[in-house]
Nucleic acid binder design. Structure first.
Lengths: 193, 193
DNA sequence: ACAGCCATGTAACTTGTTACATGATTTT
DNA sequence: AAAATCATGTAACAAGTTACATGGCTGT
């Protein structure tokens, strides 16, 4: 849903043609997210289908077709900027699923998994930090915003991994103290005939 | 890609039929992510198409069809658990896009946006913390893992929002000191005829 | 018999994404 | 004239998601 909203937001500022939407989107997100031009057109088509934008049928002398918001589109943008991103739709995070399933399945070296992930994330974090340092103060606010977002996210991931490593170790120690051999698997009534 | 991988991981432990995959998936992710049963079957179909699982054609006496991994499927699971989640595919985060576009578009009250989001996130964080407290120590490790993930993520989001609020304020102050009226929009050679 | 549940699936749709096709203009 | 660039778009697919249809078994 983010590209849809993004294009709408750009159009709320000024009617534009497809290819410009692309470059504006990229520029205004710090060049971090390359956007296939084709996707602009597919998305525009869907937005038009949904009555949020309309294009002035014919291309102009430069072959460009300008798209603009409808009233509904304007409402949509206002509402988007006016309301916080919904926490409820907790997306299925791959790493979380991996760990959650990992701790319940026998034969998965969860601690090793956590450490490998931590190492990868720390490396990534160093790259990000270097990027930030090398950029000095070029005043590209969107770029900075996106970069800092990655940094804060990666830091949180490392913290979470550390927290969970000790938590998992604790659980493992406790499990081996009480149920030396067997594993999580049991329950789930099978209701056999 | 997470549900695919999740189902594969479950099947790597033990062959299962569709409906059980569903309940196992939900149970082992702390019940946080309800999974429509239909989706299990669509996903199984795609996995079978891709040669990662195979079902024993006919349903058993209880009407169940057991699915199991192929060799390729086993490889896939091994590789999934064996490699860190790729940081490279930085997903397009809605909130980041919203802010990044917001700071480049005139007429968007970014500071207000940040504060509203912060408030919503803090509220959410309190809910999570209460959940955690009330659960005491029931030993549901996957559930805890997922919950803590949400908590660490929300905390990071708040930190980022705070960081960015002051950063945006600074930029605004600087902008009004140097370019009192006009806004970010300019550049982007238009190459008009 | 009928209601409810379990288990199977399918059809339809959404957003994201890429690879390719077409035509016009500009540059070499 | 050939190559590069810009702009338009379409076709095809992935993965997620839901609503619905079918059929068997169970308990009232």
């Amino acid at each position: 849903m983010s590209i849809r909203q993004g294009l709408l937001a750009l159009l709320s500022h000024e009617p534009m043609y497809g290819a410009r939407l692309r470059s504006e989107f990229e520029r205004r997100t710090g060049g971090t997210w390359p956007l296939n031009v084709g996707q602009v057109y597919t998305t525009l088509g869907r937005l038009q289908r949904d009555g949020l934008v309309e294009g002035d049928g014919e291309p102009d002398e430069d072959g460009r077709i300008t798209y603009q918001l409808t009233d509904a589109g304007r409402d949509e943008v206002t509402s988007w900027f006016g309301s916080p991103v919904d926490r409820a739709d907790d997306p299925r995070d791959e790493l979380t699923i991996k760990l959650a399933l990992g701790v319940t399945l026998p034969g998965v070296d969860v601690v090793g998994l956590i450490q490998a992930q931590r190492s990868a994330t720390v490396t990534h974090l160093q790259d990000l930090t270097r990027l930030k340092r090398d950029a000095l103060d070029n005043g590209d606010l969107p770029w900075e915003l996106v970069l800092e977002r990655s940094i804060f996210t990666a830091e949180a991931q490392v913290r979470w991994l550390d927290h969970m490593e000790s938590r998992v170790r604790r659980a493992a120690a406790h499990a081996s103290a009480t149920v030396p051999v067997a594993d999580v698997d049991h329950e789930m009534q099978e209701s056999r005939a």
